[in-house]
């Protein structure tokens, strides 16, 4: 599904190297968790995979379903089935949530050769998915993420994921800012999408999310590299011992 080899990426502006030879293989159906200290490069990895401007890949490769991911435009990556749930979802005043959701759903469907949904069909679908995530339907009338609470923003990210049905989703600290109930709802939303063909990369700071979304593999990212990999037990160990050790190594 996703194959990252020796990935080096730097910030374009100051040429600061953030990812320093990262390797990762994710197979269909697998859930991988990436944990690590602040500033390790976790969000940078998500941004580089999604195609955000401002980063320069200086070495290495990324193949997604056998295709050279880094040569695709941002929207093409989304159409190919990549989804990034943002650590900090962007507020877009004036663009109505419902209109945004419908546009991204239909653009993705067109790109995948599926028929567009009309206004009524889409409204029904969006309402049903929103209800599953306990999202107030009024939220669909508001501007994208504008004035949403932290928890609302994260739930809206999962709503978008549910509508776009990606094959590979990166969840960047989707658990931060969620209370226990919201965490459960969001996790259920993610688990509902889990299947043998869909993979996830769950970036988190805290083990508690992994109680809800059970990973197959856990990795520690420190100073731009995966420094350790293991099973779910690694997350428990990190919870206990913290990242101090890795921060020093960095």
């Amino acid at each position: 599904m996703l194959s990252i080899q020796n990935l080096h990426a730097q910030i374009e502006d100051d040429q600061k190297m953030i990812l320093k030879g990262l390797n990762l293989e994710i197979n269909p159906g697998e859930v991988h968790a990436i944990m690590g200290p602040n500033g390790a490069g976790k969000s940078t990895l998500g941004n580089v995979l999604a195609g955000k401007d401002g980063y320069e890949v200086t070495e290495g490769s990324v193949f997604f379903k056998g295709e050279d991911l880094l040569s695709l435009e941002v929207e093409e990556r989304a159409h190919a089935g990549l989804f990034l749930a943002f650590q900090y979802p962007v507020e877009i005043p004036g663009v109505q949530m419902l209109n945004f959701l419908r546009t991204c759903t239909n653009e993705t469907r067109i790109a995948r050769g599926l028929p567009e949904l009309n206004g009524m069909e889409f409204l029904k679908l969006a309402r049903a998915k929103a209800a599953e995530l306990k999202i107030n339907p009024d939220m669909l009338k508001r501007s994208v993420n504008s004035g949403f609470s932290g928890g609302e923003k994260k739930r809206a990210e999962i709503l978008q994921m549910a509508l776009l049905e990606p094959q590979f989703a990166i969840l960047d600290e989707t658990d931060s800012g969620l209370d226990i109930d919201a965490l459960r709802i969001v996790s259920e939303g993610v688990n509902a999408l889990r299947d043998a063909k869909r993979s996830f990369l769950v970036i988190t700071h805290y083990q508690r999310l992994l109680d809800h979304i059970k990973p197959d593999h856990v990795h520690v990212l420190a100073d731009g590299q995966i420094v350790r990999s293991g099973g779910p037990e690694l997350a428990l160990e990190l919870e206990e011992r913290g990242y101090v050790h890795y921060e020093k190594a960095a």
Binding site: E73, V74, E75, R77, H79, I92, L164
Partner: peptide, 18 residues
């Protein structure tokens, strides 16, 4: 806003439409 533009494109909306 570049970050808004990236957000919309990351959701599959082509740049011009975004």
């Amino acid at each position: 806003d570049e970050s808004a533009l990236f957000y919309l494109r990351a959701r599959g909306i082509p740049a011009a439409k975004a």
